[in-house]
């Protein structure tokens, strides 16, 4: 499949990229990892007339802790997350997530910024970033602004990014003591989108009681979903089998899956329940040992 024709430019700086995006308006798209955009162009689901390739802007690719935040540059590859010592040692939920995205070749190019900005509810980072209460930084002609991830996803392929804005960073507060998270994805085979996925992040007190829990769900709605009632239920409760089971039921109530080739809606709800249990259990274990 040959994609439709387009003009191409390769800015060296972010301000140059923003200026080009402003100049070409709606007809332009940012080319980051290209691992969603190029297949969509081949299938004529996207027909940008102009591609702005940001891959040369080296200062958009970083993973660092700074000022109480973990900051990940928009151009950071999934493979960078997988091999990052900081991520491996301190953010296993992000390692869980990055390592189940597509396959090794795709992860060498696919970027965190692209994964979020694409606005696909089947993507994996959105639920994890919901669970981590992250925010994204968008840079446009009028400067930078921060958007909480929970307000970022508006609909299928629709985000709060304005025309002319580029997602340059996702940042999340460095979790405190006795915090832990986990992401579980059910996929039919390597490389497939999630049948369902569940991300959880919990903070426990000294007695193992849940001070805070956040639950994000993948591919069971038009956007990644936050299971608010499960989160409220867990607050102040021991993270034991019975409470985890109840929270899993509440998470399934928040899900709005549709039946498709990956399975009937009932099956997906059952899988949300099961993966929520597993994710909360693992998050609890990780919180206990942190």
């Amino acid at each position: 499949m040959i994609p439709p024709a387009f003009d191409y430019s390769r800015p060296q700086t972010l301000s140059e990229a923003v200026a080009l995006l402003q100049q070409y308006g709606d007809t332009a798209k940012i080319l980051s990892g290209g691992q969603s955009l190029i297949p969509m162009m081949k299938m004529r689901l996207a027909r940008p007339e102009y591609l702005i390739d940001i891959n040369q802007i080296a200062d958009l690719r970083y993973i660092k802790e700074d000022n109480g935040y973990l900051k990940i540059g928009g151009l950071t590859r999934e493979a960078d997350l997988e091999s990052s010592e900081l991520i491996r040692s301190k953010y296993p939920i992000i390692l869980d997530t990055a390592s189940v995205i597509a396959d090794p070749q795709v992860r060498n190019l696919a970027t965190v910024g692209g994964n979020l900005a694409h606005g696909d509810p089947a993507n994996d980072h959105p639920a994890t970033m919901l669970a981590l209460e992250a925010e994204v930084i968008a840079v446009g002609p009028h400067g930078a602004r921060s958007i909480p991830v929970k307000e970022f996803f508006l609909g299928v392929f629709t985000t709060a990014l304005e025309h002319g804005e580029i997602l340059t960073e996702v940042r999340l507060p460095v979790p405190g003591e006795r915090s832990g998270g986990a992401y579980f994805k059910l996929e039919r085979k390597v490389g497939d989108f999630a049948t369902v996925g569940v991300a959880t992040q919990v903070t426990l007190d000294g007695e193992g009681v849940c001070r805070r829990a956040v639950v994000g769900l993948t591919n069971v709605g038009a956007t990644p979903l936050k299971a608010g009632s499960a989160e409220e239920f867990l607050r102040g409760k021991a993270l034991d089998e019975e409470n985890i089971k109840r929270a899993a039921d509440l998470a399934a109530e928040a899900a709005e899956p549709s039946s498709d080739l990956r399975g009937p809606a009932d099956y997906k709800l059952a899988m949300i329940r099961e993966l929520t249990k597993r994710a909360l259990t693992r998050a609890g274990e990780r919180a206990g040992s942190s």
Partner: peptide, 11 residues
């Protein structure tokens, strides 16, 4: 390793 069907030559 990358999939060369999903990269443009210009990249």
């Amino acid at each position: 390793p990358v999939k060369s069907c999903t990269v443009f030559a210009v990249q």
